[in-house]
Design a protein around this nucleic acid. Structure first.
Lengths: 213, 213
DNA sequence: TAAGGAAGTAACTGTTTAGTGCGTTATGTG
DNA sequence: CACATAACGCACTAAACAGTTACTTCCTTA
């Protein structure tokens, strides 16, 4: 059966994409320092030479992976279209989304951690990131203003602090899932524990933001 | 001048301690995967052979470093003696302490991150950790109960969830200081920014816990 | 359809790495 | 003082590593 997208024996785009996906997995699992180029080639079913052909170096490959994951999460956030919801509903939806995204994309957290271990030196070289976030912060700022007008949110809350707080509540719990399960002696990843935590996070933010929580 | 503690040319305890301190720095800076044993020997002004003599392997050295930093933070927490303060004051003191400790001991955060990247496989082998935390959780539990009796805290708050939340608010901000400063386009580590964040964290927790915030 | 460039490969290089074998030197003890 | 033991250091190994050389194979297009 002939299809429009014939599977080529040689396909630059597909190979590049496989390498990127392989790199994401490998770096997420072992960090930048612990990640192995040979292992990435293996995962991507590509020759190691191709990695250097398409990405130049291990560090540049890591930078590209980072750009991709940041672009992805912001795109998913934009797709929520929070502008069309009442402020309170929109806020709860954002909290739920952030939690679910971290839960379903654990590599996002480990990659960001790895980048911070390296003092964000790869992100510094990236040009496309800053614009991405400006839009996001102003969206949350608009959401807060709208809530104040509706009479449901307290005025004077900094959108950046709120963003950080929403992220923090989910991120910390999930990035420390392993040590946390040991020191607190309970399975933090059990379905019920996850539900409880999300409810706790929503309550924490609502009490912080709402006039009448 | 003769002193009680003569500086010996050969001093097993001192060498062991220097290695441990060097390892803490190196692992904190580069993670377990990126940390180099040769570099640890250099930092510790010890021969690499001694590392294997005292600690057996790189992994066991990492485990020992982890045990040390967890023991240290819990010891500092105990020294707060929160039992002797009114509940509300005690809670605020705990929030401030957590923030300050992360700020002054940034290696704690990076080491814990590294351990979580490796799914806590070193902590799993450690025996002294669990007891350490049991005491801590029950202390916070007692604090919450006391606050309820005093009529200042809401009843029914899970001490583990509260612990996680207090830690999360500081930890996330500080572990993501580098990427955060880029994406939010403000210096998250500026003295004023740090003050503002601590105040925001205290408000978040107080609104969550207190009857009349 | 032929040519030229791009996609892809295997085998290599020089270096770095965790870990060791074995000899040397200081130190507490009888 | 002697001597056993523990502290220490040199110089090595085998493997792993990021990156490269030199080559072959396929695909596009003129």
């Amino acid at each position: 059966m002939a299809t429009k997208t014939i599977k080529k024996v040689r396909d630059a785009d597909a190979t590049r994409a496989r390498i990127l996906a392989g790199a994401k997995k490998e770096f997420a699992k072992n960090g930048l320092g612990g990640g192995r180029v040979d292992e990435i080639a293996l995962r991507a079913k590509a020759n190691k030479r191709m990695i250097y052909h398409y990405f130049g170096s291990k560090e540049d490959l890591f930078r590209t992976v980072l750009e991709e994951v940041y672009t992805d999460i912001r795109a998913a956030e934009r797709a929520l279209e929070l502008e069309h919801l009442p402020a309170r509903e929109a806020l709860e939806k954002l909290i739920r989304f952030t939690w679910d995204y971290y839960l379903k994309n654990p590599e996002f957290i480990t990659l960001v951690n790895s980048e911070n271990l390296h003092k964000a030196r790869h992100l510094k070289k990236s040009e496309k990131i800053e614009k991405l976030f400006k839009r996001f912060v102003s969206m949350v700022g608009g959401l807060l203003d709208r809530g104040v007008q509706e009479g449901v949110f307290r005025p004077g809350i900094d959108p950046v602090q709120l963003n950080i707080t929403i992220a923090a509540l989910g991120y910390y719990y999930l990035t420390n899932r392993y040590t946390g399960s040991i020191v607190f002696q309970r399975d933090l990843m059990a379905p019920q524990a996850l539900e409880e935590r999300l409810a706790f996070n929503i309550e924490t933010i609502m009490r912080l933001v709402c006039v009448d929580p």
